[in-house]
Design a protein around this nucleic acid. Structure first.
Length: 584
RNA sequence: GCUGUUAUAGCUCAGUCGGUAGAGCGCAUCCUUGGUAAGGAUGAGGUCCCCGGUUCAAAUCCGGGUAACAGCUCCA
């Protein structure tokens, strides 16, 4: 069967298609600028890229030129032919072609590997394939070069910085347009843009990477945390709060001073070294150590909304997604080995409960033993199967992420998928066999013997800041009513209705709702438009008619005019939406 | 941190060849009292990111900072 019998929905065919596009792009570049050196050009999840070294920086105009040349190559209908060469011939071939990166790649291939090439017209590339059979298979008017950026050769920051050109292509022009539209939609939802427009948060040059919460953002955060408190009370967590700054000796015991110092902010107090906490675990441990513990205390669940600081590289900062100080909705659970599975089930149920409130689907990843680890293989296997069994026991499934665990234990990661299909790692459950031992933690078991507890680190939101960023984009700023900074905006038709509106506002506030009156000297249409732009869920138009009949005229931001009704009727409607935490 | 790009009014952005700045929105005042997505008029706002250089003259050209953006590396 020829590869062209596949459809584009087929993953393997898609990869083949994009990989061929990447060769066509490289060919176009070499035709335009023969002096450019090629590195690697794989197909990726969406599209492809090619890394290259050029004596000048590519600009959008260059990309247009390359794109035009690519279209020409597609129309030329060049056949792709595979051939193999022995290693020494492969090296001399690429040396002769003036491609040092390709020579390095060939030299690094394992001794027994087959070294294959693909030729199309005058262009030949080192490549394992597979490919389409001809460049004419690529739909010339449905391909686009998206951007050009820097990338390190072999992902190594100590090596050459190359230029990476990203591209995308589809078999139909409409699919390309839909893809580009999705990118535009993501831009419209960018939480940095919405955060500014909606008055949620801000950044200043005076504090790069350290967010300022504005009044609306503070309401959102507090509402989120109120909910967090409620859920954690229900699941038997004990809330604590530990110091921001603690002595160097503590961080030496925990291992952070040796392994995490580059990311820590430090200070000196009374001639002693201190560090601002980058993580909450050592603080929780100090609380545990305050008194002796019995097996009857376990699992002991310390919850902490811990404000941590980490010195991230300036180039890594990204709105609320990557900041230098953030709040983890952390918990440290101390428990006996045999309690692990049951506790993991509890945590998974809690996480499931929270994510479903936001309407966020997720998948679970099990990260197993990395090469660099502590503890015996048997212990690891036991821990990994405890995590795996916990997930399957509640009818959920997981994917394995081999070797991606922390050095001190395996973990479960919860990856949220937002409404644009983008994935975000939020929740995580990590088993830790190391820290309790480093701090000599113990509990007394049923035989009056001292035992070392296991520690579970877990977060649900991950970081409150990142979670706020994610839901801002997920809801495009139109938060569900229970989370909206302003839930009801009263729009008096004339100033005769101000007093009536104030009375309704007071009534709503006394019931715990967030209401505001728009008393600007503007027409109703204008007030509605502005409230819509602010994404307020409910607008209450009140005018002479309502005052006469004792009604309000609610308008929902998506459902439109709901018609006049009594205030009581509106309040019960509002109560139902808010209390159910509906995504509305 | 690295590579590239960018920085002009509260916001979004124009500003040609180097001759000390403009629009729309917002804001203020006045008119307008208007029932489901923008009523009208007038007006006030600028250390053109910071420091230095070239020049008779710099928002504009050059160098160095800072910050943001895209990506790499790293990560909640």
């Amino acid at each position: 069967m020829s590869s062209e019998n596949y459809t584009f929905e087929n993953e393997e065919y898609r990869q083949r298609y994009w990989h061929t596009c990447s060769h066509v792009m490289a060919q176009a570049v070499k035709r335009l600028w023969p002096e450019v050196k090629l590195a690697i050009g794989p197909a990726i999840k969406e599209g492809w890229y090619y890394d290259m070294l050029a004596p000048f920086a590519f600009t959008p105009e260059h990309l247009e030129q390359i794109e035009a040349e690519m279209k020409k190559i597609c129309k030329e209908g060049l056949k792709l032919e595979r051939f193999e060469l022995p290693r020494d011939e492969a090296v001399s071939f690429m040396t002769q072609q003036g491609e040092p990166f390709k020579v390095e790649l060939i030299n690094d291939l394992p001794a027994d590997s087959v070294i294959s090439f693909y030729r199309q017209g005058e262009f030949t590339d080192l490549c394992a394939g597979p490919h389409l059979d001809s460049t004419s298979r690529i739909k010339a008017n449905a391909l686009k070069l998206l951007s050009c950026n820097a990338a390190y050769w072999r992902g190594d920051s100590s090596r050459e910085t190359l230029q990476r050109i990203y591209g995308i292509a589809f078999p139909k022009k409409e699919e390309l347009e839909a893809y580009l539209e999705r990118i535009e939609e993501a831009k419209r939802r960018d939480h940095r843009k919405l955060g500014k427009e909606l008055g949620l948060f801000a950044f200043r040059d005076e504090a790069p990477g350290f967010p300022f919460y504005l009044p609306n953002g503070m309401v959102l955060q507090n509402t989120l945390l109120d909910y967090w408190h409620k859920v954690h009370k229900k699941w038997d967590y004990l809330e604590i709060s530990t110091p921001q700054i603690m002595k160097r000796t503590l961080w030496e015991t925990s291992g952070h001073w040796d392994h995490y110092k580059d990311n820590m902010y430090t200070t000196v107090i009374d001639d002693e070294d201190y560090a601002i906490k980058p993580m909450n675990c050592p603080g929780s441990i100090l609380v545990y150590e305050l008194e002796p513990h019995s097996y009857k205390d376990l699992p002991l669940r310390y919850g902490e909304l811990g404000h941590v600081h980490r010195h991230e590289l300036s180039g890594a900062l990204h709105g609320m997604f990557r900041v230098r100080c953030f709040t983890q909705d952390d918990a440290h659970i101390l428990l006996a080995k045999e309690q692990i599975q049951g506790e993991v089930v509890r945590i998974t149920k809690l996480i499931d409960e929270v994510y479903s409130v936001f309407g966020l689907p997720y998948r679970i990843l099990l990260s197993t033993m990395p090469e660099d680890h502590i503890g015996t293989r048997a212990d690891w296997e036991k821990a990994e199967s405890a995590l795996a069994d916990a997930i399957t026991s509640i009818g959920k499934s997981y994917e394995v992420n081999p070797g991606d665990g922390a050095f001190y234990g395996p973990k479960l990661d919860f990856e949220i998928e937002d409404c644009l299909g983008r994935r975000w790692q939020c929740g995580t459950i990590q088993l830790d066999y190391q820290l309790p031992g480093r701090f000599d933690l113990e509990y007394t078991d049923t035989n009056s013997e001292k035992q070392t507890p296991v520690m579970i680190h877990r977060v649900v939101f991950g970081s409150v800041e990142r979670f706020i960023g994610i839901i801002t984009e997920h809801f495009a700023g139109a938060f569900p009513t229970w989370l909206s900074p302003v839930q009801v905006k009263l729009l008096p038709v004339t100033d005769r209705a101000f007093e009536y509106a104030d009375g309704i506002k007071a009534e709503l506030e006394s019931r715990g709702y967030r209401a505001f009156v728009d008393k600007r000297n503007e027409k109703t249409g204008r007030k509605i438009r502005d409230a819509q732009m602010e994404k307020v869920p409910y607008m209450l138009v009140v005018g002479d008619r309502d005052m006469e009949n004792g009604t309000v005229s609610p308008r929902h931001r998506t459902d439109g005019d709901l018609g006049a009704m009594s205030l009581d009727a509106f309040i019960s409607l509002l109560a139902e939406v808010v209390d159910s935490k509906a995504v509305k």
